[in-house]
Simulated assay, not measured.
Amino acid sequence: MNAEIMNMIVMFGLMIAVFYFLIIRPQQKRQKEHTSMLEALKKGDEVVTQGGLIGKVAKVADAEVTLDLGDGVKVKVVKQTVIDVRGRTEPKPANDAAN
């Protein structure tokens, strides 16, 4: 009887370990990457939203991002709905006064 209980406890522990390494841990990693991507958003980045909108970031606020969709169309979206950054803007090189 005691061996059966130990086997059941070991199997239960193995199931928890499998769930952790195959489901929970990868999801936490994706969430961490998404959060760092959102924190790095800046004006000029080309982004894609969950709704399929593609536009350039015109303004970044705490919880919202204003996207320029072209032809003067600007929309505000919730920052969390941005799922991908397609093009990052690079800082412009400093202009030399000697030129």
Rank of each mutant, 00 (worst) to 15 (best):
G70C: 11
K76H: 12
A40L: 01
L14Q: 03
V57K: 05
M8H: 04
G52Y: 02
K79S: 10
Q80T: 05
A63C: 12
K92Y: 00
M11I: 05
M6W: 11
Y20R: 00
L14T: 04
G13S: 08
L53S: 13
Q31N: 04
K42V: 14
L67D: 14
Y20I: 04
V78W: 11
K74E: 14
R30Y: 12
V57M: 11
V65R: 01
V47W: 13
A97Q: 03
M15A: 15
K56F: 10
A63S: 13
L14F: 01
T81I: 10
K59R: 08
K32A: 15
I9M: 08
A40F: 06
N99V: 14
D68C: 01
P26V: 10
Y20W: 05
F21I: 02
E33T: 12
R88Q: 01
T49F: 09
T49M: 11
E64S: 13
V60R: 02
I23P: 00
L14C: 06
M37W: 04
M8D: 12
V73A: 06
R88N: 00
L53E: 14
K74M: 11
I5Q: 09
V60Q: 03
V47K: 11
R25D: 00
D84L: 13
G55Q: 04
I5W: 06
N95Q: 02
N2Y: 13
K79R: 13
P91T: 15
A98F: 02
Q50R: 11
V10C: 07
V78H: 12
T81L: 06
S36E: 12
N7I: 00
V57L: 10
K43E: 15
P93W: 02
G70E: 10
D71V: 03
G70W: 06
E46W: 08
G70V: 10
